[in-house]
Simulated scan of single mutants.
Amino acid sequence: MRKIKTAVLAAIVGAVAAPAFAVNVNWTDWQSGSTGAGILAEGVMTVDGTNIDVEYSNSAGSIFGLQTSGGTDYWQNGRSGRNAATSGYTSTGTNGNDNIPTGVDIIQAGAQATHTFRFLTEVQDIYLSFVSINRNSLTFDTPFELLSITGGNLDGNGTDSNGYWGNGGATLTSTPSTYSLTASGETHGTLFIAGAFTELSFTTSVSENWHGFTVGAASTPSEVPLPAAGLMLMAGLGAVAGLRRTRR
């Protein structure tokens, strides 16, 4: 009887405590490019049923290109299609994301610049995926977590596939006021920035032919809700009480 009770308690604790969720990122649907008011790209992010307008600009005042539909899928695994399980843009863990950026939507920038995304409605927790940061640095004024890079295994879930232009490493450094990712080679990947934002900015350290970006925000994670977890705990404790009565 003691073994049965131990097994029941272990199942209860596992069900309540296990971080069993997969964050689905709502990636921006880039829709148009514009030169008005310095806005270089405009799109919409739909988070929990709410459409949020997103604007992109940079201090150089230009972009290499903008894909809204059609064109090459630079978010695929190498050049062999998509597989979320081995993608360099997905990851497991507390803040991990389980979906690759949507479609072929990508902003292609080339100049050394300050890049700014504006969200016309405040969003919570940002995911930024990037393509081909070739020996370049991304520097933020807020901390971030590097979730995945192509050809790497940052989450311990197995080596991720190459990116469209190959792969490379990444070194993270910080000062009291800046947080940087410096790439070695053709680094592609996804990073996570916690917090509430109406604007997110970062700088690139050098100019190159082009590097690509897109942004998204997470929906409510598909965790077991606290009320449900509480009911599971109560039900489990009831089962243990029943076992005690049976033993008596």
Rank of each mutant, 00 (worst) to 15 (best):
I193G: 00
S177H: 02
I149R: 04
S222K: 11
I106N: 03
L128S: 06
S32N: 13
S87A: 10
Q124R: 13
G71Q: 03
F130Y: 12
R244Q: 11
N153F: 07
S32G: 08
H188F: 10
A235D: 13
G189N: 02
G158R: 07
T187V: 06
V206E: 15
T50H: 09
S57E: 11
S57N: 02
T90V: 10
I126Y: 05
Q67G: 03
E223W: 13
F202I: 01
G88M: 05
V47H: 01
I149K: 03
V23T: 13
R79M: 14
T50L: 08
V25Q: 04
A17R: 10
G168Q: 04
L181D: 00
R245H: 08
N97D: 09
A37K: 15
T50G: 06
F64Y: 14
I133M: 11
I126E: 01
P221Q: 12
T28A: 06
S180C: 00
S180E: 00
N99G: 02
G156N: 10
G93E: 00
P225A: 05
L147C: 02
R248M: 10
S184V: 10
D29G: 05
P176N: 05
D48T: 11
T214I: 11
R248Y: 05
W210Q: 00
M232S: 08
F140V: 01
H115L: 08
D141W: 03
L147W: 03
A218V: 14
G236K: 13
A111F: 11
N97H: 04
N136F: 08
I39C: 06
A194C: 10
Y56S: 05
A235L: 15
T220E: 12
V104H: 06
T203R: 07
G93T: 00
V8E: 13
W165A: 02
A170V: 02
G168K: 01
W30E: 07
N83G: 07
L120D: 13
G230V: 11
E42Y: 04
G81C: 01
G93Y: 02
N157T: 12
H115V: 03
D125A: 01
S219A: 15
G189R: 07
F140C: 02
A10E: 13
Q67L: 07
S137C: 02
T204P: 07
A22V: 12
H188E: 11
V23Q: 13
G158H: 08
T68W: 00
T86W: 06
Q108D: 08
Y179E: 00
S129R: 01
Q112V: 07
N209W: 13
V25T: 15
V13G: 12
T187I: 04
N167G: 05
I107N: 01
G156F: 07
P176W: 03
A241W: 14
S207V: 04
A60K: 03
S219G: 14
G156L: 05
